[in-house]
Design a protein around this nucleic acid. Structure first.
Lengths: 159, 159
DNA sequence: TATTGTTATACTCTATAACTATA
DNA sequence: TATAGTTATAGAGTATAACAATA
């Protein structure tokens, strides 16, 4: 009845890329305002953490600062993100979403969510409950892992 | 108790990129033979379908032929994939894994699976069962969706 | 010295468009 | 005419290395 951890891990490895591919395709479609997944994630973080720094974004996404710099730079050009100098610590910048950025974020989220809703529509109420619970179990584990990898990288850089 | 489809969809959208990020990082690490996720998926498909054509790979992954061509071309250069001309239909090529390709695929799969196993180790037996069942429910839905999108693209191209 | 952001460079993934060879 | 593979081109994501400004 109960699955060994390796079997569950294998299934995560099989299914996650499939889901990611669908999410990616939907976000690039015109319906969802044509964001890439990393762009979407950056907007999401800034929306949840207005006034955050560039490095805060990079750390939360598990990416490097040049990577985030380029993405944010493009979003500033596109009028989605506002970049201000911090008066507290003049090395830092403060990132916030523009109204347009908020709008695009919401449209993308709604569009993608709608598509995912269609895809899972064959599930019964009980099956939806199972999926919901499962992802709720996985979320903190993978969040924590992202943090740990960040710290490991930090340690390696300094050694 | 039961979650509406939109809530479940939202959670898929929240959690999938987190998992994908961990999978990506693990595959790029030296432990797992340094493949990208698309490279891994190509090797996986050829391994399951020896003698397949380039377009078969592209369709199964939901990507275009130039994209797959470049990935496969690099893998042929790296000695992971063998590309032969088909004697039946001389437009086609036959793709197979070399022993080295099989070896790298297995090492990558094992390494990534091991990392995922570590990450989910806090789960109880019952929780593992929930995760396993949930992903088993999602897999066919997202597989089917990939196929549908492929056909939609086909239709649009011909119109 | 350490941190924050930035620039330079290089590589991979991805798509569209256009092409060749074959059916 | 249609299909399989290829090439050219362009844009986005990603990392490492090196740098300037600030703390």
């Amino acid at each position: 009845m109960s699955q060994p951890p390796e079997t569950v891990a294998r299934r995560i490895l099989d299914v996650t890329p499939l889901m990611m591919r669908v999410i990616h395709t939907e976000m690039r479609s015109q319906r969802a305002a044509d964001l890439t997944v990393p762009q979407f994630r950056v907007l999401l973080f800034i929306n949840r953490n207005p006034g955050c720094s560039l490095l805060a974004v990079a750390r939360s996404l598990g990416l490097t600062s040049p990577t985030i710099f380029k993405i944010v730079d493009g979003q500033v050009d596109d009028g989605l993100v506002r970049r201000q100098d911090s008066s507290q610590d003049r090395r830092k910048i403060l990132l916030t979403l523009t109204p347009r950025g908020q709008d695009i974020l919401q449209k993308t989220r709604e569009g993608t969510q709608l598509r995912l809703t269609e895809i899972i529509s064959p599930l019964s109420a009980r099956e939806r409950e199972v999926v919901f619970e499962a992802l709720g179990l996985l979320q903190p584990l993978f969040l924590q892992r992202n943090e740990q990898e960040k710290m490991i990288n930090h340690g390696e850089r300094e050694s």
